[in-house]
């Protein structure tokens, strides 16, 4: 239906505008092509020891035939993702709750805010020695470290969103005689949802980065493990292949989160139309 209308009502100017807008679809593709050309150029000199696109492609075909530690490429990606998803589920649940608590309740913020700010400064990987000492090198400690890394952005953004609700919105609640709970659930939380989603976005990318680093420090599966494996055996195409996978998965995760935001906050999507 819509398409027909567009064809009928488009003026000459609008048609040109549409053509011009097509460049925004072309530019990303162009960038990828350029990057690959650059890659070919950089690897064409044997002295550079830079794995060529062809060697990475061959490495990809090889891993399909011959799994590493019983897992194919997808298996390793899924191993990493699984850790991230479990950690994210807990980080979101706890982080949003805690963020709401210290964003809404001034006393809670005074009590817990400073400690939290101090903890925030500690990079997640700094926890590795202690966590390893306590829990060994199994699955749980990895998830725990990813959780620590993913928790911080959720808490910070949620707290900021809840604490900075526009006064105009709170006035609406006052006028309609909303009680404290209604103020929070009907006004503060919905109006903070875009801030909370910013936290969710950041925590997802943080979680994805931390899991790879955690896997590099010890483990028998995951994309991070593949990188270390490649490094140890001088298999640099494997390293590069893993890095490409990390990038692609990170990109896809961002798209999933964006999609999620559209569903949960439909008003923000309609605004941009």
């Amino acid at each position: 239906m819509r398409k027909e209308h567009e064809e009928i009502f488009l003026s000459e100017y609008e048609r040109k505008e549409l053509l011009r807008n097509r460049i925004y679809g072309v530019l990303p593709v162009l960038a990828i092509i350029l990057l690959i050309c650059l890659w070919f150029a950089a690897s064409s000199n044997p002295a550079s020891k830079f794995p060529s696109p062809m060697s990475v492609w061959e490495r990809y075909l090889k891993i399909l035939e011959k799994p590493i530690k019983d897992l194919g490429l997808m298996g390793h990606i899924w191993a990493s993702l699984k850790r991230v998803f479990i950690a994210l589920a807990f980080a979101w649940l706890l982080g949003i709750s805690f963020g709401i608590l210290i964003g809404w309740n001034k006393k809670a913020n005074a009590l817990l805010g400073p400690i939290f700010t101090a903890f925030r400064a500690v990079p997640p990987l700094a926890w590795v020695p202690l966590v390893t000492m306590w829990f060994g090198i199994g699955e749980f400690p990895k998830v725990l470290i990813v959780f620590v890394g993913a928790l911080m952005p959720v808490v910070v953004n949620t707290q900021a969103g809840i604490a900075n609700v526009q006064k105009e919105y709170m006035d609406i609640g006052t006028i309609f005689h909303a009680n404290e709970w209604q103020m929070l659930t009907e006004i503060a939380i919905p109006s903070a949802l875009d801030a909370i989603f910013a936290g969710i976005r950041n925590s997802t990318s943080a979680g994805w980065m931390v899991v790879l680093a955690a896997e590099m420090l010890g483990g028998k599966s995951g994309v991070g493990f593949l990188i270390v494996r490649g490094m140890d055996s001088g298999d640099y195409p494997l390293c590069l292949l893993s890095m490409i996978c990390i990038g692609v998965v990170g990109y896809l995760l961002a798209i999933v989160i964006q999609f999620l935001e559209r569903i949960i906050c439909p008003w923000t999507a309609k605004k941009s139309n």
Binding site: Q166, E168, Y169, D171, I172, T174, I175, H177, I187, P190, S191, L193, C265, W267, K271
Partner: peptide
Amino acid sequence: SDERIGMVFQKRALMPW
């Protein structure tokens, strides 16, 4: 505030969500 009094605001009147 009193329930018997209602108000129409100048701006940011509605909750966008």
